[in-house]
Write a protein that binds this DNA or RNA. Structure first.
Length: 105
DNA sequence: AACGTGACTGCCC
DNA sequence: CGGGCAGCCACGT
């Protein structure tokens, strides 16, 4: 558990560092943590982080799709929140990664 | 301890 | 171009 908690803690730290108006992907977070195959686990961390005040709405899948929107108060809250921060969406309802993708350094 | 599930990703058909 | 399968990691039952 300790190892997992550490992983979760790192995920939270990275997500908390995402600047407003920017987004990152599960894969990038996982890769930054040294476990690029754990993108799924990152999503699990977000699920546990939902409601903790973490800007998890800035985390999208590698296609920029808001796959985790259903974890919010509503299926559209995530998108509205991102729009409020100045994030642009394409016709597919996905975040324009080319313009807003942020990678942990 | 084992099985099932999930906010992912990549490869194959 | 779209859908399906497999691999990975952690959690809940």
């Amino acid at each position: 558990m300790a190892a997992a908690d550490d992983f979760f803690d790192r995920v939270y730290e990275v997500v908390a560092r995402i600047p407003a108006g920017r987004v990152t992907t599960y894969g990038h977070i996982a890769a930054y943590l040294g476990a690029k195959r754990s993108a799924r686990t990152v999503g699990w961390a977000m699920n546990q982080a939902a409601g903790t005040g973490l800007p998890c709405h800035r985390v999208v899948n590698r296609n920029g799709a808001l796959t985790g929107r259903h974890a919010f108060e509503g299926p559209f809250v995530m998108e509205e929140r991102l729009r409020s921060e100045g994030v642009a969406f394409n016709d597919d309802g996905c975040v324009d990664l080319r313009q807003h993708l942020w990678v942990p350094a």
